[in-house]
Amino acid sequence: MEVKIAKDAGFCFGVKRAMKMAWNELEKSENGIFALGPLIHNKQAVSKYEERGLKTVEQVEVIPSNKSMIIRSHGVGESVYSEAKEKSINVIDTTCPFVKKIHNIVKEYNDKNYKIIVIGDMKHPEVIGINGWCNNNAIIIKTLEQMNEIIFDNSKKYCVVAQTTINLTLYNNIVDKLSKEIENIEFYNTICSATKVRQQSAKELALDVDCMIVIGGRHSSNTQKLVDICKEVVPTIAIETKLELNEEELRKYKVVGVTAGASTPDWIISEVIEFLELI
């Protein structure tokens, strides 16, 4: 079997930065540190950090006063910082700079009385955090079909941002429709360059192989988008680790391509590649 690896795969800048910051803080801490939500959408990586003393919680209110709290790379809403300050919690902010840029745009335009539109998944932590910078009043659009249910007010001004991991084609299609329906609107394409590059790299590789293997967490948005992109081209297998691979199933393919989401550690990718090269 020939194994080909996507040119761009695995940890992106934002995740790599967050993981390094978190690990450095854990090494300095004697009593452990709290993380507000899973550090990244990869349970294998998070487990390693929890073994070192990381405690994952879902709400600021359960964190004792004067403790340290990590804000993950997905970012959080403005109110979380206020809650932490009230409890004298030391905030270790690993929010991805690209996500922080979206927060700043949303806050600026919300303060100028623009209605905020976020192109993304309302259940994703990044989008929940973005919405928290405009008093949770954003219009959130995930599909073109959703737009048929929304009535826009042309007496208002609108500002559009995007979840960093949203599919570029979907973003462009929604932007095209919005520009036809709303008179006073400003667009900010805030899709992360790493996301665009990974999606393009995965698509190019999929065209050159018999099967694609996409490695990443089940709850990782950018990983699932890579799966969708590859599936449009070639048979695609989505896994979290090498343990999910079926050797007999893979033997029918001569050339297999491998890519991974932005929250997939290098060691997990290496294990998968080593497994495939032995088939």
Rank of each mutant, 00 (worst) to 15 (best):
S220A: 06
K196Q: 14
S221F: 05
K123N: 10
N167E: 14
G75E: 00
D153M: 14
D121N: 13
I150H: 07
A206M: 06
K231H: 12
P265W: 11
L178F: 09
G37E: 08
V272F: 06
K225I: 13
G32W: 03
N131G: 07
E274F: 05
L243W: 10
G216T: 07
G261K: 05
N137D: 06
I70Y: 08
K4Q: 15
I185T: 04
H74F: 11
E186C: 08
Q163I: 05
V197E: 15
K123I: 06
Q224C: 14
R52K: 15
Y158H: 11
N184H: 06
L226P: 09
A18T: 04
V227H: 06
D208H: 15
K67F: 13
N172P: 03
F34H: 07
I89C: 04
Y188E: 04
E149C: 02
A138G: 09
L54P: 01
I139N: 07
R218C: 13
L39N: 04
E204Q: 10
D210P: 13
C134E: 00
L276K: 08
S47K: 11
I213K: 08
A194N: 05
K87Q: 15
I191D: 07
V76H: 02
E204G: 08
K115G: 00
H103P: 13
L168I: 14
G53E: 12
I174V: 01
N172C: 12
I273V: 13
G53V: 14
S47M: 04
I140C: 12
E61N: 15
I213E: 12
W133M: 03
S220T: 09
E240R: 02
M212D: 05
Y109S: 00
K242M: 10
E240V: 05
V233F: 10
V209T: 14
Y49R: 03
L226C: 12
P64R: 13
E83F: 08
S73R: 06
M1F: 14
I273L: 02
A202G: 06
Q199Y: 12
S65I: 11
V209A: 13
H219Q: 13
M122P: 04
W133N: 02
I116D: 00
D93S: 00
I116G: 00
G261I: 09
N173P: 01
N110Y: 15
T236L: 13
A6Q: 10
V3L: 11
L26H: 11
E277W: 09
N148M: 02
D93L: 01
T223I: 05
G10M: 13
F11I: 04
L245R: 08
K85A: 10
C211A: 14
I71L: 01
E145V: 06
E30K: 15
F152P: 04
E274N: 15
A6Y: 09
A35E: 04
F11Y: 11
L170Y: 05
E149P: 01
I139E: 08
K48H: 12
V258R: 10
Q200R: 12
I141R: 01
F98E: 04
C230F: 04
L243E: 15
N184C: 09
G132Q: 03
K100T: 11
S47H: 04
E271H: 03
Y81W: 12
P97L: 14
A260F: 10
F13D: 00
G132H: 03
V160Y: 07
K142V: 01
K225M: 12
K16L: 06
D93K: 01
K48V: 07
E30G: 14
I5T: 03
D93Y: 02
